[in-house]
């Protein structure tokens, strides 16, 4: 008996990542050092975290366009509160996460109650969050706090002098947490059910409203967490930061093998999607002669490839079923 067809996109993602890494390594043997790996994880930590939230949203058949703005809002919120008050960063983090989670839950509520497309509701959320960030400040606010210095200075030195930073670990834990939620809980099963068909899900006993609210609350939480990590990574808060990150996250999810219409995919695939995109960037830095827009071109090509792959796969499973019928 062959492997389950739903695993093919995940295999494809991992295979592409390994092949890409091999090509990089052949050209620049240093690419296979723990330093590069450490940087790859650190540089893409915020993207990886927000993409986990996006994966769950897309699995449920929705979309969340607000996350890029929420990340920017989070950075601004943290930096302004730290500047103007004497609260400990951990308290500020807790405050922020409750705000972004509630924001996500609110969007989920509107999507369910008003039966509005997630696209429009979260588009409104995108403008709201970006506007809220501007309301707090229009400048880039540096974060100057001992706790931030402490986090930046704590890392695990891997053999070969690569640094496994705190934010990289947070990202990996987020992926593990997201995978657990999506694939091993009843909530996760409900998310997949929604992505498979709302009507059928309801007939099978899914609480559609509750699940929708939780899905967007989860995405809001992850966007807030991503904002925290981004503020640690950049050491500042800036309302114009991470414009378009929601689209990069969607790209990472699709390259990670999740089907954009929902109901099929793996959270761990998203991690590989993020890493593949990061790898392209790293390659361009190593090469030195290539302009950075090559990143976008390669990502665009990869996206196209995956869309074609998914279409082909759907056809394939379709014909399998037809064959079984005949």
């Amino acid at each position: 008996m062959t492997a389950n067809a739903r695993l093919y996109p995940l295999f494809a993602t991992i295979a592409i990542f390994i092949a890409a890494y091999a090509i990089c390594w052949m050209q620049f043997p240093y690419m296979l050092s723990t330093r590069v790996v450490g940087n790859l994880l650190t540089d893409n930590a915020y993207l990886g975290i927000v993409a986990v939230g996006m994966t769950v949203v897309i699995l449920s058949g929705g979309i969340d366009l607000s996350v890029g703005s929420v990340i920017a809002f989070s950075g601004v919120f943290i930096s302004v509160v730290l500047r103007d008050t004497s609260l400990h960063p951990l308290v500020v983090f807790a405050l922020l996460l409750s705000v972004t989670t509630a924001f996500g839950a609110f969007m989920g509520l509107i999507i369910h109650w008003l039966a509005m497309p997630a696209f429009i509701v979260t588009l409104a959320g995108m403008f709201l969050a970006r506007g809220a960030a501007y309301m707090l400040t229009i400048d880039s606010v540096p974060i100057d706090h001992a706790f931030y210095e402490f986090i930046k200075d704590s890392y695990y030195l891997m053999p070969g002098k690569g640094r496994l930073t705190v934010i990289a670990v947070v990202m990996l834990l987020s992926v593990a947490f997201g995978a657990l939620i999506a694939h091993r809980t009843r909530f996760g099963a409900s998310v997949f059910a929604l992505g498979g068909g709302v009507q059928t899900a309801r007939l099978m006993g899914v609480n559609v409203g509750q699940t929708t609210v939780l899905v967007y609350a989860f995405s809001g939480f992850m966007a807030g967490l991503s904002g925290i990590v981004f503020s640690i990574y950049t050491g500042s808060g800036y309302p114009l930061a991470t414009v378009g990150t929601e689209l990069t996250a969607i790209a990472a999810v699709v390259i990670g093998g999740t089907i954009l219409t929902g109901g099929a995919g793996y959270v761990v695939g998203t991690l590989f999607g993020v890493l593949t995109m990061g790898l392209i960037q790293t390659y361009i830095v190593f090469d030195g002669t290539l302009s950075s827009w090559w990143t976008k071109i390669v990502i665009g090509l990869l996206l196209l490839l995956f869309i074609v792959l998914q279409k082909g796969l759907l056809k394939l499973t379709g014909t399998q079923r037809d064959a079984a019928l005949a």
Binding site: A189, A193, G195, G196, T200, A201, M204, G205, G263
Partner: peptide
Amino acid sequence: VNLLPNLTVAQNLTFGREPR
């Protein structure tokens, strides 16, 4: 069929009563 083709047979059969 009012089941979900994107879930496994086992998930469909035990949906809502999954052993935990």
